[in-house]
Design a protein around this nucleic acid. Structure first.
Lengths: 292, 292
DNA sequence: ACGTCTACATGAGTAAAATTCATGTGGGAC
DNA sequence: GTCCCACATGAATTTTACTCATGTAGACGT
């Protein structure tokens, strides 16, 4: 068929649900929008077609004559699209899961543990969408996000708190030997990372050298580089503890000064609310909760 | 079927056209969007499905394996929706045309002439969407608009200039007998209409009494009421001439002072660009052009 | 008769999606 | 090597979808 004058296709979704359920309210619940959205969508479709598709009765609706003609055609069409869409998705995505994760977290925490997930769920291939500076979960690019935020409240997203994390200042063993008190920090560089200077200052204040981290030197783009630099004896970096607990355990890095200060936000596993029932997402969520 | 996880339906339109034509560029032309829009839409659908639907080759595309599966299902579904949509539209709207028109223009100019249009095109029922203050064409509410504007450049709309109109100051015959020169206007009220005070002042300046219209009295919501008030001897109103030429011809209103000042904008017949080929719209446009 | 509750309707404001714009890229034709 | 073409992409803009707040009409209970 040559170019067709289709109605706005999104409105068909609302119309079909409302027609099938005989209720704008029930359709709204199913589609996870407000009743008002369904009402507006149906009205838009009716304007486009130039005729009512429903007869409005007190507290309920019936299909109009035109609606009775339209509904089975639309329902059948959407059903066929949905079935084929699911088939293609299953073929390609139910066996994979894309995780959006900060590159440092990927390298230093997640990747070492992924083997365990693969063993637990061999049918799910995990792809990592590692980002350098993106703190916001992008549902267009990933199925889930391992995200640090202080405001876990973006609409349409489900946030599951995995951990609140302590901040630690770490350095190489050589530098650690020279640090007896916080005052000794004045002799070494703070390796600051863009976007995390608040954390560094919070930690510095907690060990009694408020303001010191602001006199810092090399600015790094990511914790990954900063941690490497710290391990190489170039100074002290302040990071969430879970990123360096492996290095602390093997002596590669040392946390010479104790502090109980916590990051103000939390680390969350995030996904689109409406995808909360997908098996791969649920399995990953369960697994990562068991790891933290 | 209970709630389904449909892809974004708008993307299906782009996918189907691109798949049928084997060209994003040709699909863009057919859909009257840019090639970039098609590219973005297809990419969005591919992300949603988790797999490419096209194989990109130099300067052309082929359907991928999944695309080959998906295309006939989507095409068939959209064809069925389009056919049924057209059937419903034909039943309800191809024989009718809704004209958005300022209420004064409707009462004083268009309605008296509609009989001629009905005789010329009896198969087209004209509905009027008369508005009081809306100067902007709303394609959601009407098929065409008879619109005054100085800026005929909103995107996606086609503007056809019908006329540029002279402004006239009109009053009852009784008041007209008392007006020999423009200075005599000082003894009478200017009947101002919200939204048209610029016109009134432009006219007043053109007959040599700049500023006089700004000392005006009763403010009316529409020219219709103001014209009625003028005919009833309550003062002078400044309006586009075509609105009162019938009253001037029958002596109900008089334009005692000549002026050649024109309205700065124009009167246009407006419609959605993409609907320019519809028979009812074309017929109405031809007819109203012959009337002006 | 009155009050309460429900589902749909509507306008305004906000968020998300669609689209345009400008430009880049890779390959084919000449 | 140059030019041209179709597709790709990011940013900005426009349009659409949606939410919010509120209104309305009728059903139901008292």
């Amino acid at each position: 068929m040559v170019r067709r004058n289709l109605p706005p296709l999104t409105t068909l979704r609302a119309f079909e649900a409302a027609a099938r359920l005989m209720s704008f309210k029930a359709a709204a619940e199913e589609l996870r929008v407000t009743q008002s959205a369904v009402s507006h969508q149906v009205a838009s479709l009716e304007r486009n077609l130039g005729t009512p598709l429903f007869v409005r009765l007190p507290g309920r609706v019936e299909l109009s004559q035109e609606g009775t003609v339209y509904f089975p055609v639309v329902q059948d069409a959407l059903d066929k699209i949905a079935l084929t869409t699911d088939l293609i998705r299953k073929t390609n995505t139910s066996a994979s899961l894309t995780v959006q994760v900060y590159v440092t977290v990927a390298v230093r925490w997640l990747i070492p543990r992924l083997q365990a997930f693969k063993e637990a769920s061999p049918e799910i291939a995990v792809n990592l969408d590692a980002s350098l500076l993106d703190w916001e979960f992008n549902p267009d690019r990933a199925d889930v996000g391992f995200i640090y935020t202080r405001a876990p409240n973006r609409p349409n997203l489900t946030y599951t708190l995995l951990r609140r994390e302590r901040l630690v200042g770490v350095c190489s063993p050589a530098i650690a030997r020279a640090i007896k008190t916080a005052e000794d920090l004045r002799h070494f560089s703070f390796l600051s990372v863009s976007g995390t200077t608040d954390d560094a200052e919070t930690w510095a204040a907690s060990v009694g050298v408020a303001g010191l981290s602001q006199k810092s030197s090399p600015l790094f783009d990511s914790n990954l580089l900063a941690i490497e630099a710290a391990a190489n004896g170039q100074g002290v970096v302040v990071v969430p503890q879970f990123l360096v607990e492996g290095d602390i355990a093997n002596g590669n890095l040392v946390a010479p000064l104790a502090s109980d200060v916590m990051q103000p936000g939390g680390w969350y596993l995030v996904h689109l609310q409406r995808r909360g029932n997908e098996k791969a997402i649920r399995k990953f969520l369960q697994w990562i909760q068991s790891q933290t």
